[in-house]
Structures are given as structure tokens and as C-alpha cells.
Simulated assay, not measured.
Amino acid sequence: MPLDHRQLPTFAADAVEVPFVIAGFDELVDTDTRWSEHSHPTHELLWNERGASSVTVGPRTWTITPLLGLWVPAGIVHTGLAPAGTWYRTSHFGVRAVASISDGPVAVTITPLLRLLLQRLGEEGLSDGSRGVTEAMVLDVLRPADRELIVHVPSAQLLRPIVDAVRADPGDPRTLEVWARELGVSTRTLSRAFRAETGQGYSAWLSAVRTHRAIALLARGEDLADVADELGYASVSAFGAAFRRVTGATPTSFRPRPAGAGAARVGPGAGAPVGPGAG
């Protein structure tokens, strides 16, 4: 399948004065789409109506779903990736009107209330008074999530063979002990290297990588048994238990929802030089 590679500009925070508090945009992508490195003069909140996408900042990649979005403060350089069939939404927040909820990117739980409020801001004919009330309610409920779907990719040369193998095939069955023998080092040396770079042990890092891949497969409607098998789990129940430990939710909660109406650009920010998009 062809890749739609999109270019967006790089803006410093507040480099462009915008005439809104919150402005929204959405798109249903029909091909795999990648956004190159860019940044916005506004804060950005990304989430999906359908499918799983991702945003990368440096060595960290966050998974974005209908349940879990990502807040990216203004001026933060990032890239984005949305597989074909993803229906993403993004809201931009003017920095002069809204303080960032964090110093860096942070996951945001997309609660039913937050979803409805953001969708309401995209309705045509919304009065100034109603818009102001709705924006205030959005800011009142907008807060970082308790969990993040994040993978930190180590850069140490010692770990490169492991990282490359697992990213190519998250179901790779080799344990850290096996990798240590193959690389001619001690298991303790590898464990320390993983913790130094990611803050996690190898098992936790591997679970995060597998969960990242699992969500993408589930969002495409793949069968649970097929996903479990591809990721190296002995059974669906073992996969489900590992998945819940990372996400706090069941795999079925990430399956596609019934298709709704088609997507379109919405809100007064759709044509602004903010560079709206999945990144």
C-alpha cells in the first residue's frame, strides 16, 4: 500500500497568533499516512474516532486510540503515523488563552464527556456564548491520564540487535538470558542497559512493544487468537492478562466501533496556519 508522506512546518510556541481558544479538525485517511517532523504554535490534543495511530517525540512513541489521546504542548517537534482507515481528530488550543496541562507530551483519557464537548465545538452555528461555555467545560475536564501507551526505543549500540529484532517481530521468543548468550554479555549487563535507557526492565519493555503492536492489529479488526499468536502468547487468556497489565483495559475495548458518518474538516481552525493534522 502506498504511503502518503505529508510535510508540515515547524513553529515555535505562539509564533502565530490564532483567533480561537479551541479549534478542531478531523480526517479519515484512506492510505497509510506519515507526518514528518513538525511543531505547532498551539497546544494540540489528538485522539481517534476509529483506529490506532501514533506520535513520536525523540525516542518515545505514544499510541493514540479512541480511548486514549495525546496532549502535545506548543512548539514540541514530533512526527505522526496513521494507518489506512484511521479516523483521527485533533484540537488546537491557543497558548494565550490556555496553559499547557504538562511540560511535555502526555496521555489524556478521552472520556465520553470530553468527546461530546469537543465534538460540540465543531458544530456549525454554535453561538459565541455556547462556545465559551463549552470551551470552559473542556478545560475543566481536560487532564493527564493515569496510564500511557508508550514505547521508549533504546539507542545503545549494545541493545540494537534486540531492539531491531523485537520491533520487526514482537513475538520473538528469545528471553534476555538467550540474548545475553548470543551477544556474549551477562544478563545483568543487558538488564542494566534497558533500565538506564528506558526506566524499565526488559520484560516490561517487551510488553509495551507487544501492546503497541496489538492495539494496531485490534484496531484493524484482527481476531484475538490471531493477535495472541502473532505476538508470541501461548493463549488468548495469557495475551489478555498481559494486555490488561499494560493498558488497564481488555483487548476487546480496542476493537473497531461501528462505522459512523464520514469525517470532514470542522471548526474555525481548519484553514489556519497552525498545520492541523494527525501529528
Rank of each mutant, 00 (worst) to 15 (best):
F239G: 11
R6L: 15
W62A: 01
D164K: 10
A193H: 06
E17P: 00
A196H: 04
R213S: 15
F194W: 02
L126R: 00
S100F: 00
A180V: 02
A74T: 02
R265H: 07
A272M: 08
A216D: 04
A238V: 04
G51H: 01
V138R: 01
T250M: 08
P2K: 06
A107G: 00
I215V: 15
V72E: 00
S237H: 10
W179T: 15
T250N: 03
P2D: 07
A259K: 01
I150N: 03
R220P: 06
S235N: 08
L28M: 05
P83S: 12
M1Y: 03
W71M: 12
A52Q: 02
R195E: 10
G51I: 04
T86M: 05
L67T: 09
D172P: 04
G58E: 04
R220L: 11
F93M: 09
L28C: 10
V227D: 10
L70H: 01
F20L: 14
W87V: 11
W71S: 15
G51Q: 03
R143F: 07
A278H: 10
G221K: 03
G279S: 15
R6Y: 08
G240D: 13
P73L: 10
V133Y: 06
T42I: 02
V16D: 08
L159I: 13
R89I: 04
V57T: 07
T10W: 05
G51P: 03
R195F: 13
R96C: 12
H78C: 08
A272V: 02
L121T: 03
P251F: 12
R50E: 13
L117K: 12
P9R: 02
G129D: 09
P2M: 09
A82D: 02
R34I: 13
D146P: 00
P83K: 00
L183Q: 03
H92D: 09
T109G: 05
A214I: 01
L158S: 07
A272Q: 12
R96F: 12
A136W: 06
G171P: 03
R34W: 04
H38W: 04
F25L: 13
R181P: 04
E197P: 08
S36E: 14
V106N: 06
A241H: 05
E230V: 14
H78D: 03
A193T: 09
T86E: 09
V166N: 08
P9I: 02
G51M: 02
P144C: 10
A264Y: 06
